[in-house]
Design a protein around this nucleic acid. Structure first.
Lengths: 223, 223
DNA sequence: TTTTGTGAACTAGTTCACAGCT
DNA sequence: AGCTGTGAACTAGTTCACAAAA
């Protein structure tokens, strides 16, 4: 219908489940491209990576018509489109709040340095840490400098890796610094204004959910 | 109807969304209990922690009737029930695969030491690391020792914190060692048998989803 | 009266199945 | 012939609203 590719779906909101999957599709395409595959059908993609073909097509249809009937998708083309849709066609600067074990590990985590992301700064409030840097050279700044540095560096995403007790205070500072996207590793819910996107990774919830599964298994065995 | 409390829902499967929320409810109840609150209605709980009252009641109804009509729930009682349902009424031993930055950070992460969880071992294959320990004293073993130690220590959960390239090999070893629950931090999908529960935290997907949100915001501004 | 527990209504997400394009 | 794009059917998840219990 609409032959014009749209970076943004026409009005209707794209679900987070869809955006998560786009990221997965991009990863699959990177693998295929590296293997020299030129075109792939939604069915072949689905079979190879255990996805659903119709779902792939529906997800992509939110943004345009990228396929060719009778052929499938050109791997390099679709890759380029997905990178553009996901906003990965430019560098995105990331700041990590909290230079504790977790913050330092994330700062040096190679998985975090993929695609367009660059970790440009760590922030902490401990005098001994400020002025130091991570193993790979990410500088640790005083959290008081956040607003100044966030603006100068044009930081797009903040990662919250501080203890639960200070998480809300820190995220408030992040919001005040004008940062619009936050990835939270601290346990519990954080409040952010509607204009800020918050994603949380709650390790306690994940572990307890696994614990539930184990407890169920034992209950079944006993039967 | 069924006045008997059920540790396990009668046949019908509990969704993972529900088990995740149970963990959230437990955390809320811990806060209320610490504040000396004796009883709470589903509505009050919902208001205070931004949840939906009917959803809380439905989730709990999977496991029995824990409330008192006209009163609500006794905080300590419900807390105890939830801990039992989630299998947190006993120690759960956790092993971390990979003694890199992330593995070491997770081993010492205080959030991981909550409730019933104890991190008993790290596993790696680097000669220099084996025999060492983390800052808080978690020993690093040779991954070859996994099966032996997993059985001796009765390890319940394995956390995968190795590079993507070796993740599938490592999870295969985890499965071979008889571990039935896995929390995966490596990017990409892992294959496990149906009898093993796998939860994945994909940092790349999370970041790219945030990037999409930022890209959308810019598109909107330009309009 | 208050609040639970739950069927019914609704909303979101997934899969099917096929018309239509190449 | 082969495969996309998409309405229709289906499935899962959430919220409403009320009868029943304390």
């Amino acid at each position: 219908m609409n032959l014009q590719n749209k970076l943004r779906p026409a009005g209707d909101q794209v679900s987070e489940l869809t955006t998560n999957r786009l990221s997965v599709y991009l990863r699959c395409l990177n693998v295929l491209d590296a293997a020299g595959v030129k075109t792939i059908s939604s069915q072949a993609l689905a079979d190879q990576f255990r996805l659903n073909a119709a779902q792939i097509r529906k997800d992509l249809a939110c943004f345009g018509e990228f396929g060719v009937r009778g052929i499938g998708y050109y791997v390099k083309d679709l890759k380029r489109h997905l990178r553009q849709i996901l906003g990965l066609d430019r560098r995105i600067k990331v700041a990590i709040m909290g230079a504790g074990n977790l913050g330092l590990a994330l700062a040096d985590y190679p998985g975090f340095r993929q695609e367009g992301f660059v970790i440009v700064a760590l922030f902490d409030n401990t005098a001994e840490k400020i002025g130091q840097q991570s193993r790979t050279g990410v500088p640790i700044h005083d959290i008081k400098e956040l607003k100044r540095i966030a603006r100068r560096e044009r930081i797009g995403i903040a990662v919250i890796a501080v203890p639960a007790a200070s998480a809300q205070t820190v995220v408030d500072a992040v919001v005040a610094a004008g940062i619009k996207a936050v990835l939270n590793f601290s346990p519990g819910a954080l409040r952010v204004p509607a204009a800020v996107k918050l994603k949380s990774v709650d390790l306690t919830v994940s572990l307890e959910s696994l614990s539930f599964y184990l407890a169920q298994g034992e209950a079944d065995e006993a039967t």
